[in-house]
Design a protein around this nucleic acid. Structure first.
Lengths: 190, 190
DNA sequence: ACTGGCATGTAAATCGTTACATGATTCT
DNA sequence: AGAATCATGTAACGATTTACATGCCAGT
């Protein structure tokens, strides 16, 4: 039972419907918690039944109605308990790294292509994070915002996401060029 | 069916028993694939039944005997297929980041402590990675090793792990000091 | 005698992914 | 008319975690 805390933490920032939450988990939240839309729908239903979130119908014009959810007092209390508990070890799974681990024993061609693609995706995400951070801090300088701003949590996690994406891009480009150089050297020997 | 590829990639490097593999997944492999020992035992049994790895008994003196596993030709072929397939999105879950996301709404005290602990753990891991990298490359310079060395895959993934841990340490110390400064400022207002 | 590390599994309960299912509205 | 986006769910299957279970050997 851990997805629930990620959902509660995401809802602290603003109320979301299942669909909007899925979008959030696709961008910002994705830096520290991976979940598919179907999980969010079922988790929200469970959280509502347990009284940790409250849903209400929002009538919309020009698009289907939706149900948005707010964290209740009991939900905040649950987050408090979670914050005090020992964190579980970081959970990472990355196909691409598995492929690099095996790169000297299987054909490196596909892996190099996938590294290039990942680096390009990282560039897009870096720009998105920079824009999001600028939007969150508004016209304040970063130092000021970190000291006195509201919504400091999302800002700090975005900073982490940004740093991670920059690291990802550097590692992918570096690794791709190492593997390419080795393929070229190998080709020369033939 | 993805744990199997991480297991196969780890076994390319050298033969391991279930127990040894669990240790590897606790240190080096943990940077890109999280798995518990119980999973590895069951996965090895499945892989053996399917002929992707071959096990053999190793008689030991002074400790219980063990079964070590080698990747078969079919296992390498399976890895080739995996390398050519599109990678699944990176899967990350980190309790600590969820807590930071919520840090302006729940008590920050525990979170600050956990950030300090994570930074300290990162320091330990950084030293372990540096030692492992030095051992892998032996007396060669890094450039040379990257161009001509064997076992380049594990070296590249360790480089990634090292960069990630350094980033983790910086972010944790920075975030802890931001949260501490805000708590101090809040206390003054009372 | 006890602790800690080595060594391997099974079973039950929970969690996560994939496939299936539906339907409105806007834009091209 | 068709594609894209908004919007929400259920059911079956597969994967993961937790609890249970066992036993050897070395060092203190």
């Amino acid at each position: 039972m851990a997805l629930r805390h990620a959902v509660l933490a995401a809802l602290l920032d603003s109320d979301f419907s299942g669909y909007q939450l899925a979008k959030a988990f696709d961008v910002g939240v994705a830096n520290f918690w991976h979940a598919l839309p179907q999980q969010l729908y079922t988790e929200l239903a469970k959280l509502e039944k347990e009284g940790l979130v409250a849903g209400r119908e929002v009538v919309q014009h020009g698009r289907p109605n939706k149900r948005v959810f707010t964290v209740t007092g009991a939900g905040v209390a649950e987050l408090e308990r979670f914050a005090a508990a020992e964190p579980k070890p970081t959970f990472i799974r990355d196909d691409l790294l598995v492929k690099v681990q095996a790169a000297d024993r299987v054909g490196a061609g596909h892996v190099v292509r996938q590294l290039d693609e990942r680096a390009a995706a990282a560039t897009t995400r870096i720009a998105a994070f920079e824009a999001l951070l600028a939007r969150l801090r508004g016209d304040q300088a970063e130092d000021d915002y970190l000291r006195h701003g509201t919504r400091i949590g999302p800002y700090l996690t975005c900073l982490r996401g940004l740093a991670l994406e920059r690291e990802t891009r550097e590692w992918c480009t570096g690794t791709a060029s190492v593997l390419r150089a080795r393929e070229a050297a190998h080709a020369e020997q033939i």
